[in-house]
Design a protein around this nucleic acid. Sequence first.
DNA 1: AAGGACAGCAACCGCCCAACC
DNA 2: CGGTTGGGCGGTTGCTGTCCT
Length: 380
Amino acid sequence: MGRHSCCVKQKLRKGLWSPEEDEKLFNHITRFGVGCWSSVPKLAGLQRCGKSCRLRWINYLRPDLKRGMFSQQEEDLIISLHEILGNRWAQIAAQLPGRTDNEIKNFWNSCLKKKLVKQGIDPATHKPLLSTDHHHDDNKKQEDTKIIMTTENNNEKNNTTLPSSIHLPFSTNLPSSILFNHSGSYYGGGDDDNNNDNAIIEASREMFMTNNNNKATTFLDPLSSLYADYFPQQQQQPNNNYHQLSAVTAVTNYCGGGFCSMPSLTNSDQGGHVSVTDHHQLVKESSSNNSSSNMYTSPWDDNIMSNKMMEPFFQFNAIKCEDLYKTSCSSWEEDNNNHQEHTHHNTAASSSSIHFSNYNPLTSLSEDLTAANFDVFHHI
DNA sequence: AAGGACAGCAACCGCCCAACC
DNA sequence: CGGTTGGGCGGTTGCTGTCCT
């Protein structure tokens, strides 16, 4: 059968997706939904085949994707499912919410397969390898166990090693609900300047979105955990400069067509460098008729994750954190040296849609930093 | 410091299948 | 009923970053 007809057309781009392409696709799908993929490129203004768009959406842009490393539970589940299902990655992926078949397939081929072999298990049959080497025994198993534990311990103790993408453990840092009034004043969370230990974390809880005309609204707050991951010493060095850094929470009005001024929607900059993207989903808990407050709950609440009201979504590019950090913190260079893994972002490529020039890290105000429909609020 | 080897992963390719005409 | 089209899936490739010598 060969190539799809949609791919036969000339002048179709191939290879890595640029942030601009991602944004176009993201805007299109969020606005019109997933329909006929073959028509998506034309409607979205992309020089890609529909298949490529579909793949990009499913494997990367979809807002419900879980990112970051596989947990031990996920790993075990994949192995178990593979034993039953074989290489039916799509079926395996169906059992792991937020994971794509491609991701699982890659994980299997790059890690799990080798791990099983090391443990003396045939990854194809999940039975002990019939090897002439009878020493795939306790020593090897212990070694493997050690490797796994070391990795996990590192993740827990030392956040300086970032995965290529992060699944934010948001629920651990966010209050269950945050109250704001309609002007964006902050009512909830905590921002105790006298207790700098958790200044970033506490302050980053500030987020706000007004609800317009009883329609769905979206917001994102990528920062409370991003800071914990990006600048872990923040919590260890309460007197450093970091607490003066204000975090920016981008807020936009979904119904107002506000995606147009979103920052880059990709975590893959053009150089293919590592960067971090997170997707956040808003749950508007209360009816907008309740004028006393707008209450938002953590989108990661399991009960709410199944709630249809969470449909609108956002994603946030951590480059913004870095840009802001550079802008705001005089000790950037110093920190930069300590976080080389974090510095590969092509910030120039993706910072065009948001400007920090007017940003005052020492005040607590909100201002419209970008075009219409894109509001930025910040805190500390 | 340089370069080769390796690992990880995004994206493409080719095939299958179902829906539609 | 056969041809066409489009979506889905698994295998594979190739790029990039990291590690190792």
